[in-house]
């Protein structure tokens, strides 16, 4: 077991990645990829979690596989646009199937969800095995793409000016759009997430907002899965907002928490992976889990410590109150 944990060389873990300009650029790309993925997922995830659809991310991220495979078969290339369209189409179809099964059949939401996405995934795996080895998409890459390869991806040029690697640019664009859309449609998203009846009576297009959210979930997943894998996406949808909810109850505060948390996850995961020499994306989730644990312990809203002391105080208070009540009730009884 001892060989499992290598000794922590402080300089190698924290210093070396930034020593030379080349290393710096390389690693900065990885870290910023991590930050952008967790940020975009965290922002969207806040609304998804509020709608109690946390596992929808799980479903859609697996459900896009047949879309990717079909796009590849149709175009015989890994061109970005067809892949993107295929994945979004499959993701939306998946969420539509879930909704339909839930509404029109006796199946419950959880069963409808599990049934749909596993079937989609199985179909996707079947298609991919038919493609043979000339396809460079496989289920494995979908499940845990390697964030460390981000700098290796082809660069995008504006004229002769190199802007940056493609995955980084696409997730950056998606993050910007998400921030923009959330600022514009904040009220609508908030109302539809918490009070369906009210939003219907206000005349909001509830269904359109739901599918819009699902579309953006699919877009985020498509933009990020290739480099970070599905599991990081699922985790980042849920962890930031649930962690923040131990400290804040108001939506804007929880949304804003995604920013520092995503930076924390990304750097923490990067260093942890550097130390243990393991998957960066998975390490980020481990860091996120640790943050969740700490928040659960010390949270000011619902944390264990707070609750424990508060409840003890409260029970003491009620005991005193009941005591005084009993004492004061005697004279009343006499009169």
């Amino acid at each position: 077991m001892s060989e499992f944990f290598p000794p922590l060389d402080f300089n190698d873990t924290f210093g070396m990645p930034w020593a030379t300009p080349k290393d710096f650029i390389w690693n900065a790309q990885i870290v910023s990829m991590g930050i952008l993925v967790s940020l975009s997922c965290g922002l969207i995830g806040t609304f998804i979690v509020a709608r109690k659809l946390a596992l929808m991310g799980d479903a859609i991220s697996h459900g896009i596989l047949p879309g990717l495979a079909i796009a590849f078969i149709a175009t015989q290339s890994k061109a970005l646009l067809p892949m993107f369209i295929g994945a979004c189409g499959a993701g939306l179809l998946c969420s539509f199937c879930i909704e339909w099964l839930h509404k029109k059949t006796p199946l419950k939401m959880d069963a409808a969800l599990g049934l749909t996405f596993t079937s989609f995934f199985a179909f996707g795996v079947l298609l991919i095995t038919q493609l043979g080895n000339n396809a460079h998409i496989d289920a494995e890459c979908l499940l845990y793409g390697e964030i460390g390869f981000t700098p290796l991806a082809e660069s995008i040029y504006w004229g002769s000016l190199e802007i940056g690697s493609r995955p980084l640019l696409s997730i950056g664009l998606v993050t910007l759009i998400i921030i923009l859309l959330i600022t514009i449609f904040y009220k609508q998203l908030l109302v539809t997430s918490f009070d369906q009846t009210l939003s219907v009576s206000l005349g909001l297009p509830v269904k359109a907002i739901h599918y819009g959210l699902m579309l953006f979930l699919a877009v985020t997943i498509v933009a990020s899965f290739e480099s970070v894998g599905v599991i990081l996406v699922i985790a980042m949808l849920i962890f930031p907002s649930t962690t923040a909810s131990f400290f804040f109850t108001r939506m804007p505060a929880i949304l804003l928490c995604s920013f520092p948390l995503s930076i924390l996850y990304s750097f923490g995961g990067f260093f942890l992976a550097r130390w243990l020499d393991c998957s960066i994306a998975a390490s980020m989730v481990v860091v996120a889990m640790a943050c969740f644990g700490i928040a659960w312990l010390i949270g000011t809203e619902d944390g264990i410590i707070k609750k424990y002391f508060f409840e003890r105080k409260l029970s003491k208070k009620t005991a005193i109150k009941e005591g005084t009540k009993k004492a004061s009730s005697f004279p009343e009884a006499q009169s």
Binding site: L55, M289, D302
Partner: peptide, 22 residues
């Protein structure tokens, strides 16, 4: 906690899985 069942399932699913992958 106030975390819903679906979120709890998602947290454990992705958290444990990530530890496994690590």
């Amino acid at each position: 906690t106030k975390v819903g069942l679906d979120s709890a399932l998602g947290l454990v699913l992705s958290g444990f899985y990530a530890v496994g992958i690590c």
